[in-house]
Amino acid sequence: MNVLLDNFALFREGFLGTVELTALSGAIALVLGVVIAAFRVSPVPPLRYFGAAWVTLLRNTPLTLLFFIAVLVLPRLGMNTWSFFQLAVLALSCYTSAFICEAVRSGINTVSLGQAEAARSLGMTFTQTLRLIILPQATRTVLPPIGSLLIALAKNSAIAGGFSVFELFSVQKTLSEQGYNIFLIFLWVAIAYLIITFFISAVFRFLETRLAVAR
């Protein structure tokens, strides 16, 4: 009995499901995380409070609970045209954005204050200072933790499998329901996750070395 070959289409579907969840949620989380980080260091108090609330709320809520809210509560509050996939992306990206925000913020803090002062004294606005001067310099320190966060995101996406989104973990459930040897299923599922996480690590290693050369 060959679990993988017998069910290749299923594995493929699950693998692509996890890749799509990770890629889409990761992209949204990155944008959202940087924006919220900007809020947190902004000179406007309401934005700072919003950023702090966002991080506190999302970082301290178990992801499973966020999924329950996204999948079971939000549709009852009117978001009933959203698909399970979209709701899962919403939960995953909001959750991950809180962590990315904090990674970016710590990166911002590693850039010396003088850089921001120099930019401001040239007449740059807050957003210009952040975009042109601070973030590019923060990128290198921020890359390794963000890589880890995206790897964590790939693995966290398994929770979506319990909420009607087809991904690698649903493959495991489907196949063990059919009675295949659970160890073999897990082995292949694990390998599939490894492919995704290795890919993410490789991309980030590449970015790190490229940035190192550019300096």
């Binding site: 499998g161 319990g162 909420f163 009607s164 649903s170 459930k173 489907t174 329901e177 059919q178």
Partner: peptide
């Protein structure tokens, strides 16, 4: 339930239903 034989039958059969899969029947 996610991945259950029952939902596979609904997915693959001629029913035209929209499958929803949760981890627990209670959900």
């Amino acid at each position: 339930a996610t991945g259950s034989t029952s939902i596979q039958r609904i997915k693959n059969g001629p029913y035209g239903a929209k499958p929803v899969e949760y981890d627990a029947y209670s959900l």
